[in-house]
Amino acid sequence: MRNLSRILIIALVAIGATAAVQAQDTAELMKQSHLAYYYAGDDGKSEVIMRMVDKKGKERTKEFIMLRLDTEEGGDQKYYTYFKKPSDISRLTFMVHKSATGNDKRWIYVPSVDLVKPISADDKNSSFVGSDFSYEDVSGRHWTEDNHTLVGDSTMDGKDVYVIESVPKKAYKGFARRISYIDKSNMLPLKEEYFSKKDKLVKIMRAEKIENVDGIITITSRSMENVKKSRKTTVEFSQINYNVGVTDDIFTERYLKTPPRQYVK
């Protein structure tokens, strides 16, 4: 596949003007995929079970409720997380104001000491609560941060997919190259392969389960395999609701301290 992409790129460069159009079209495909994947509805609520399995097969679980509000379609978003399990972090709340272009802002509230604390959030590539997903994997890396190339078409599990290679515009430690397999029928990524600077496959995201939720095709289970560390995290979403009317004021200190019980039960 890699070689194929090289050949394709060379071919496209040779064609010149066509290549520019092509790149723009591919960026448009990635945008559509990004919107379908990370911006479904204007807001969303779901219960999440996160299973982390290490190389010895030992499993750890976290359960939480997540609220999302899109401030702008394809732009800034706000996330609210209420942890239910395990016991040592139960009732802890966590809030992210995600900036599509700049640094995110993150706050944590520790109920046992009534402490609200902003967290330095310079690194979008750091692990989300110890899992194999990074913050960016949870909320999405903006499509404008990478150059995209349509490598070709293929099929995966009987579905027609676009195969798209993305290379960060600015050197990025999260990955040097990513190959996405995007379902043509709904624009959701069925699989993403992340390669390191040395072009080693380091992690693989897979859409494990896709369902129709309130008319919106949704990945209800996805996994991230850390190839290097032989670890895997699977995230299952349930009780998903879109357009539940989450308001902007929920993503403030007031609700960080007192969870919005209409959503957080």
Partner: peptide, 9 residues
């Protein structure tokens, strides 16, 4: 006063 600045808090 407290806030995010210079990649930290």
């Amino acid at each position: 006063i407290r806030g995010a600045i210079a990649g930290g808090v």
